[in-house]
């Protein structure tokens, strides 16, 4: 049926390996910059503080990072579709409240189940508003941030919900094989997210939608469903993050997670995921999370106030986005 001309077809474009290596490094510049910066930062803190470079401190960093990690992995999915989820913080708060109520009445497992359903549900709602009513992700999730914060505060009456089963707190403080449980939860989330992105049809469709929505649509990809699924996944991982954070404080907190929208977006962008969509990996986002968490921990040890930390993270986000923009300009050849 077809004519085969393998002699020509199989040949790849030529060019010296030196050129191709240089091209490779140029393309990977962003990816390498963050791990190098992270290592440099670790070296700096290790030199400035006696307690920083200890096993116990790294366990602390891990526990502190795991909540943000879960949220950032979901955020990655949304940003890959060229979207944005500003409502993750309020999802964390709402889930914390819902989880606490259900858990107090029915026990740990139903509480966790309710938390996951609640998080994914808000995500679906986000996706629905964005795809059906064509509200931009920025506005839709900003509005949802307000709606869900208000709902969480209303449900809780504005105060923390105490009286959770004592077993629940163990999630935050137990270890398994020497690894804190929150870190294990975050690692599993990372694994699932990365495999979903790399190996599944959904993952590829997600990147296609983010890279070029029209081309994806014309290829028969159900663009709207993919978008909604991305927000649902983001809501789900926000719920996972909320469970970790709620377990740490052993109570339902209607004000939990207020800094998470900014921190999660910063981690994603630091991890080299393009805000323009389509490009990035969850593993690199994990490095972004590590960067932010180590920075916070180290600055704490150096007695630098959390207010200053906020300023530093804000600046880091601007730098990361500026680098992403410079990358995009180069890629588009203009």
């Amino acid at each position: 049926m077809h004519t085969y001309r393998e002699t020509i077809g199989g040949r790849m474009s030529t060019g010296s390996w030196r050129e191709s290596l240089a091209g490779h490094l140029r393309g990977r510049g962003m990816e390498l910059a963050l791990p190098i910066a992270t290592v440099a930062m670790v070296a700096f803190f290790a030199a400035s503080s006696d307690v920083f470079f200890t096993g116990q401190n790294f366990r602390n960093i891990g526990i502190a990072a795991s909540g943000l990690a879960a949220v950032a992995f979901g955020q990655t999915f949304v940003i890959l579709t060229a979207g944005l989820d500003l409502s993750v913080g309020s999802i964390v708060a709402l889930v914390s409240v819902v989880c606490a109520f259900v858990m107090r009445e029915y026990g740990i497992a139903p509480g966790i189940a309710a938390a996951l359903v609640c998080g994914a549900g808000v995500g679906v709602l986000n996706g629905f508003v964005i795809t059906r009513f064509r509200v931009s992700p920025f506005i839709a999730t900003l509005a949802m941030l307000s709606v869900m914060s208000g709902l969480a505060l209303n449900l809780a009456g504005g105060v923390p919900i105490p009286g959770l089963p004592p077993g629940f707190g163990l999630i935050a403080y137990q270890s398994f094989l020497g690894i804190p449980v929150p870190v294990i939860i975050a690692a599993v989330t990372l694994l699932v997210a990365e495999l979903t992105l790399r190996a599944t049809r959904f993952g590829r469709h997600l990147r296609a939608v983010g890279g070029n929505e029209e081309a994806a649509r014309l290829s028969g990809i159900p663009v709207e469903k993919i978008r909604i699924a991305a927000y649902a996944f983001c809501g789900l991982t926000a719920a996972i993050g909320s469970i970790i954070l709620t377990a740490r404080v052993s109570s339902g907190q209607p004000t939990l997670g207020a800094t998470l929208p900014l921190e999660s977006i910063a981690a994603v962008v630091l991890g080299g995921v393009s805000l323009a969509g389509g490009r990035g990996s969850v593993v690199n986002v994990a490095v972004g999370v590590a960067f932010i968490s180590i920075l916070a921990n180290g600055l704490n040890l150096l007695n630098i106030s959390s207010y200053t930390q906020m300023m530093i993270i804000g600046f880091a986000l601007i730098v990361a986005v500026a680098l992403d923009q410079a990358n995009l300009r180069r890629a588009s050849g203009g």
């Binding site: 990147r207 890279g211 070029n212 029209e214 081309a215 393009s274 389509g278 490009r279």
Partner: peptide, 8 residues
């Protein structure tokens, strides 16, 4: 704009 996802 429509045929390819050029980043993939």
């Amino acid at each position: 704009d429509q045929g390819l996802v050029t980043s993939l």
